[in-house]
Every structure is written in C-alpha cells, then in structure tokens.
Simulated assay, not measured.
Amino acid sequence: MSKGLVVSPEKCTGCRTCELACSYSKGDNFNPKDSAVSVMFYDEIGLQIPMMCMQCDEPHCMTVCVVNALTKDEKTGVVNYDKEKCIGCKMCVSACPFGNMTYSSRLKRVVKCDMCGGDPQCVKMCGYGAIEYKELDGALDKRKIIANQFKEAFGEGAK
C-alpha cells in the first residue's frame, strides 16, 4: 500500500492555511499563487475543498513533458518535478485534467505537489484535519476516493 493525501471537505473551513504552508515550503514566501494546493470555494452550498495533485496512475502531465522533467516514483506513486530539466513550456499545466498544477510567475517554474517528500506541510498545518496523509486502501483506486469525496460533499445528486 502507498500513502497519499486524503481530503475531508466537510472539515475544511476555507482558512487557506494549507495554501500558505505549501507556498512557504515550495517558495519561501506566503503566497497562494505559489502553492501546489488550492482551496476551491463553493459558496452556494457552503463548501470548501482543498485540491492538489492526485498523483495519477497514468499522469498526463508526465506524458506531455518533452524533456522528462516529470517522473513517477514507482515505489511511492509520487509524480516528481525536476526544475533543472524543465524548460517552462507549461504543457504539463495544460495537460492536467484536474487543473492541479500551476505555473508561478514569481518563481518562474511549475508548482506541483510532491507530498513534501513524505512530510506534507499542508497536513501538518491544517488545524481542522481536512487533509490527512495516510495509507490508501489498496482495494480503492484514487478515482474512487476522489469520486466518493465529491459525492459526500455535494450529496447523492452528484454522479
């Protein structure tokens, strides 16, 4: 089994501390634009959902990278980003079907969740337990986990 980030939207207060913790750990600055996690607000139903890289089984970001700056660690399942190889074309940002990669104009590079090498700062700083780093159930694939989170967050009508 591998470990991953699991979000509980019902626990999120929208404080955005996860964004600040991430941006500081990635770029030494408290700036949500430099964060690999973004809190999505659904005001009409009073819900906030932290979104970050899903570490896809078949990452589109990695497939489109012409310089192999993105590689998947088969042991951890993390899609890692090598800023030294990156040419800044932003194809990976466009290829992500979830929109969970970004480009920082200030840092002049892609910002992507790498689970902080196994010590995710967003988890450490979330005072409400909305983001957890834990063993993923091998019987459930990541898509089912994500789908169930959205189903719980939006109710039975979300399919």
Rank of each mutant, 00 (worst) to 15 (best):
N29G: 03
C92W: 02
R16P: 00
A36N: 08
M62P: 03
L136T: 06
E132R: 15
I145N: 04
T102G: 10
C65D: 04
G27R: 03
S2Q: 08
K142V: 14
V110G: 05
M125E: 09
G27Y: 02
P32A: 05
H60L: 14
A21Q: 04
A139N: 12
V66L: 13
Y81T: 06
T17P: 00
R106T: 14
Y103W: 12
N80C: 10
C22T: 02
C116R: 01
A153R: 05
D28K: 08
K134C: 09
L5I: 15
V67C: 06
G127Q: 15
C126P: 05
K142Y: 10
K85G: 05
V67T: 14
G155K: 09
L107P: 03
F154L: 13
V111C: 02
M52H: 10
E44F: 11
E84T: 15
N29R: 10
N68C: 05
A95E: 09
V37L: 03
P50W: 06
K151C: 07
F150S: 03
D73G: 11
T13K: 10
Q149D: 04
V78C: 05
V37N: 00
K144G: 14
F98G: 10
K151R: 15
I146W: 11
T63M: 12
K151I: 09
V93N: 04
V6N: 02
L47S: 06
N29K: 12
I49C: 10
V123L: 00
P32K: 07
K142L: 14
C86G: 10
D141Y: 12
S23G: 07
H60K: 15
M62R: 13
K85A: 14
L107W: 04
T17V: 12
G46C: 11
N148Y: 05
E156R: 12
G77A: 04
V93Q: 05
L140A: 07
G118N: 07
E156L: 09
S35D: 00
V110K: 06
I49K: 09
K134R: 15
Q55Y: 00
R16S: 03
V7R: 01
S23F: 01
D43S: 15
Q121L: 03
L136W: 05
N100P: 01
V67D: 07
D141N: 15
V37A: 00
K151N: 13
Y24H: 10
E132Y: 06
C61L: 12
C22K: 02
V37S: 00
D57E: 13
T63H: 10
Y128T: 14
M54K: 09
N68G: 13
M54D: 07
I131P: 02
I131T: 06
S2F: 04
F98P: 04
K72L: 09
V110I: 13
G46R: 11
N100W: 01
I49Y: 09
Y133H: 05
A36F: 11
I45H: 04
R106W: 07
E132K: 15
C61Q: 12
G14V: 11
A158M: 13
M40A: 14
D137T: 08
L136A: 06
I131N: 01
M115Y: 04
